[in-house]
């Protein structure tokens, strides 16, 4: 019987590692494809500054690849883990950890490609501001990595927390649910933050005098966009660290799995929506100085309301965890 479990654990580790690496690489590849397309246009428009453009692309890509290197680390940890001392729960831990990191790297990969592409266009438009645009691009794509960092934290917690002594029956569902909540929850925020950083680069390239307030509002918008990913991390932490009593029926397992799925999927839409809002606000703040205060206020209110469906998902998951 122990051999049997070891075989299944190995299968789970390979599937988990494959998912982590595959999803992670796809996200980064889409982002880089966007960057390359934008850089194509930029070089076609002014070939004489192609050196600057290549430099920007290189720096942007180096930062943007952080998320997929996280996925690589998790995949390697899973593939070369110690298979000697395993239990039934290890199967779901490995699956969930790989899934969480893979899904979490998609959003950040796509998101951090967007500002890099826009920075190439911006440098062509305003070559004198190239240092400033590069700085904003790097800051934007570094902050857009934070949902992937949340997913990394969840995967590492899953791998290193001691689950011995927990009953198998509801705990396996809690573990897989935690992976879904943190991984899927990171997609929306990653893409949304990428959109905000993109319009930050665009705004500075169009209106160099507005650089300061554009930067400040961009950082504010990105911080608010990140909240849905934080909700995903919150549900994941609760699912991992709360010890559930043993239950024979399949219903309680499904409740925990449903809680994770609910929060994960429910965070995608609000994340992207908040990104749209902040993108538009940053764009217009860079164009009209007089309306900065009104625009910041409406941006915060609009983002808060767009987030409310994500909060309903949070409520349903909390009910599924604590009440049922």
């Amino acid at each position: 019987m122990t051999d049997d479990i070891q075989v299944w654990v190995k299968v789970a580790a390979f599937i988990g590692g494959g998912m982590a690496m595959g999803f992670g690489a796809i996200g980064a590849a889409i982002g880089e494809g966007y960057t390359a397309a934008k850089a194509n246009e930029a070089i076609a428009r002014s070939p004489q500054i192609s050196g600057d453009l290549f430099k920007t692309m290189l720096l942007g890509q180096a930062i943007a690849e952080t998320a997929s290197i996280f996925a690589l680390i998790i995949a390697m940890l899973l593939l070369f883990a110690d298979f000697s001392n395993v239990s039934t729960l290890t199967i779901s831990i490995f699956l969930s950890s790989g899934l969480c990191m893979g899904l979490g790297a998609i959003g950040s990969g796509i998101g951090s490609g967007l500002p890099t592409g826009e920075a190439c266009t911006g440098i062509v438009r305003q070559p004198g501001m190239k240092n400033r645009i590069t700085t904003i691009m790097l800051a934007g794509s570094a902050i857009a990595q934070s949902p992937a960092i949340f997913a990394l934290v969840t995967s590492l917690i899953l791998l290193f927390v001691d689950f011995t002594g927990r009953p198998v029956s509801p705990t396996w569902a809690a573990i897989i649910g935690a992976g879904f909540a943190s991984g899927l929850g990171a997609i929306g925020s990653g893409i949304g933050e990428g959109l905000v950083a993109k319009s930050g680069c665009e705004g500075i390239a169009r209106q160099p005098l507005a650089a300061t307030r554009t930067t400040n509002v961009m950082l504010l918008g990105m911080a608010v966009t990140e909240t849905t990913a934080i909700y995903g991390l919150l549900i994941a932490c609760i699912l991992i660290f709360k010890s559930f009593p043993a239950a024979e029926s399949i219903a309680s397992s499904m409740a925990l799995l449903g809680a994770g799925l609910c929060m994960g999927i429910g965070a995608i839409g609000p994340g992207i929506g908040e990104g749209f809002t902040a993108q538009s606000a940053v764009k217009w703040i860079s164009r009209s100085e007089s309306s900065t205060a009104q625009l910041t206020r409406s941006m915060l209110v609009g983002q808060a309301v767009a987030e409310s469906t994500g909060i309903y998902a949070l409520v349903i998951s909390l009910v599924l965890i604590f009440v049922i």
Binding site: I230, C237, I238, F241, S308, Y312, L314
Partner: peptide, 28 residues
């Protein structure tokens, strides 16, 4: 009624989430 739920859970979720994350990270 959903307005009440969303406005209060937004505040609660953010503050609670922040404190849980700080606790988990300081544990790690």
């Amino acid at each position: 009624l959903a307005k009440v739920v969303s406005i209060s859970f937004r505040l609660f979720g953010n503050i609670m989430g922040g404190s849980i994350i700080i606790m988990v990270v300081s544990h790690l």
